[in-house]
C-alpha cells in the first residue's frame, strides 16, 4: 500500500447525497480477478453514454477535474455494497482523498486498506470545501494527514480527526496482515480457550 502523507491536488465537487458503490463502479466491472485497471470505469454509468461516449457535464469529464485527486461529496458517500472495487477504481483514477459529512461503514474501512484517506467534516465545512472545489484548476486543496488539516486555496484551514492506528498505517503504508501475524501467539491462545468454552464452533 502507498503511503499517504501530504496531498496537494485538485478537488472535484460531487454534491449528490447517497453516492452508492453501484454508481462508483457498476457490477459489470466486478468480474475482474485483479485489483488494477478499474479507473477508466469509475462512475461508468454517470460518466459515459450507453455507446461509451463521454457525458460532457459529468464533473470528472471536465477540465481540470479529469486530474482530480480529491472528491468533495454529499452525505453518506459509498453506501451499498462491500465491493472493494469501489476504492480500487477511485485509486486507479487517481483519487487519494474523499471528504464528506458521512461515509458508509464498509466503504470507509476499505479506503484505509488502499491508501485512500476518507475525511468526515461537518456540513458547514463541506459547504466551504465544495465552493472551493468549484473554483477549478487554480484552487489546489492541501490535505495534511500528519497535521490532520485540510486547507483551501484561499488559506482557510480545517482540522479533522482520524483514528490513530489508521493514521499510523496510512502514514507508513503498513500492511495489516503483517501486523496481525505478529500477534499469532494471542490468536493461538484465544483458539485454545474458545475450544473449551465453545467446543461446537
Amino acid at each position: 500500500m502507498d503511503k499517504f502523507t501530504k496531498l496537494t491536488g485538485i478537488a472535484a465537487p460531487m454534491p449528490l447525497v447517497n453516492i452508492d458503490t453501484d454508481m462508483i463502479i457498476p457490477k459489470q466491472f466486478l468480474k475482474t480477478i485483479q485489483r488494477s485497471g478499474l479507473g477508466k470505469n469509475l462512475f461508468d454509468e454517470m460518466r459515459y453514454t450507453q455507446d461509451g461516449a463521454e457525458i460532457a457535464d459529468f464533473v470528472l469529464n471536465k477540465e481540470p477535474y479529469r486530474k482530480a485527486e480529491i472528491i468533495i461529496a454529499g452525505d453518506n458517500f459509498g453506501c451499498g455494497s462491500s465491493r472493494e472495487h469501489a476504492p480500487w477504481a477511485l485509486l486507479d483514477f487517481g483519487i487519494r482523498c474523499v471528504i464528506s459529512t458521512s461515509f458508509a461503514d464498509i466503504f470507509y474501512n476499505n479506503c484505509f486498506k488502499n491508501g485512500i484517506l476518507p475525511i468526515v467534516m461537518p456540513q458547514e465545512v463541506v459547504d466551504v470545501l465544495m465552493e472551493d472545489a468549484r473554483k477549478g484548476g487554480n484552487a489546489r486543496m492541501v490535505v495534511d494527514l500528519e497535521a490532520q488539516t485540510v486547507s483551501t486555496s484561499d488559506g482557510q484551514s480545517f482540522a479533522f480527526s482520524v483514528d490513530p492506528f489508521r493514521k499510523h498505517c496510512l502514514l507508513n503504508g503498513l500492511d495489516d496482515i503483517g501486523l496481525t501475524l505478529e500477534k499469532a501467539t494471542a490468536i493461538d491462545s484465544f483458539e485454545a480457550k474458545a475450544k473449551t468454552l465453545r467446543p461446537w464452533i
Binding site: 464498509i106 474501512n109 501475524l181 483458539e191
Partner: peptide, 15 residues
C-alpha cells in the same frame, strides 16, 4: 460485510 483486503486478513489470521 467486509472488503477484499479484510477477506484476505481473515483468511490469513482468522481475525
Amino acid at each position: 460485510g467486509i472488503g477484499t483486503s479484510e477477506v484476505e486478513h481473515v483468511l490469513a489470521t482468522q481475525t
